[in-house]
Design a protein around this nucleic acid. Structure first.
Lengths: 102, 102
DNA sequence: TTAATACATGAACATGTTTTCATATATTAA
DNA sequence: TTAATATATGAAAACATGTTCATGTATTAA
């Protein structure tokens, strides 16, 4: 499959955003359903401010989406592709190395 | 699925490496079969030196693997998970936005 | 051995990113 | 309105990364 330059850059941008451990932790916590910012901060051990900064990036890239309910804002995966990509990668790491590699 | 901290960091590292446009282009060219370094440089428009630097990172993370044949060194995807992850992401970008997003 | 080709590597520059801290905004309750 | 909770944001500090250039190593052929 051939990609345009814009598509390549867009994909790289999504991978890049997934490529920071703090942000990836936040993302993974959001894969199973909406989670509030404060809960993400608690779960990840990052400050609410830092979590909020990361959430903004993830949201801007349409990796996550936000929904306010009262005082809290809940974030969850923007679509199933995101879940699939992260799921595949988890499988990749969970599996033992394949034959033939050096 | 619960991940250890090491696993999370390992996954983030792989995503991070896929998250640079030059490196992603190199990776995508390697998905369909072994490609020599010089051909990757030509195809991507990057210098052989830069391609080599990127290949070293991709190889160290076991995203690609190398095989020398005479003077040339051929790189290809280390396993099918890599192909799957990139393929999923291409689908993600190729598809129109889903319902319900803001 | 020498030369030519193909790739790899170290150092340095330029740029970009993550994180913290202080402060601002939104929502609800009193 | 005031206070309390929850989240967002701007700026700066600390740190990391991509790229280039010069040079080094491997392989083959003469």
């Amino acid at each position: 499959m051939a990609l345009t330059n814009d598509q390549t850059v867009e994909i790289a941008e999504i991978f890049r955003l997934m490529g920071d451990p703090t942000r990836l932790r936040i993302l993974i916590y959001c894969l199973d359903g909406p989670v509030a910012v404060g809960d993400l901060a608690q779960a990840t051990g990052a400050s609410p401010s830092l979590v909020s900064h990361h959430l903004r990036l993830l949201r801007a890239a349409r990796i996550l989406r936000a929904e306010r309910r009262g005082k809290k804002v809940y974030y969850d995966a923007a679509d199933d592709h995101i879940r699939t990509v992260v799921g595949d990668m988890i499988d990749h790491v969970a599996e033992p190395a394949e034959d033939g590699e050096d």
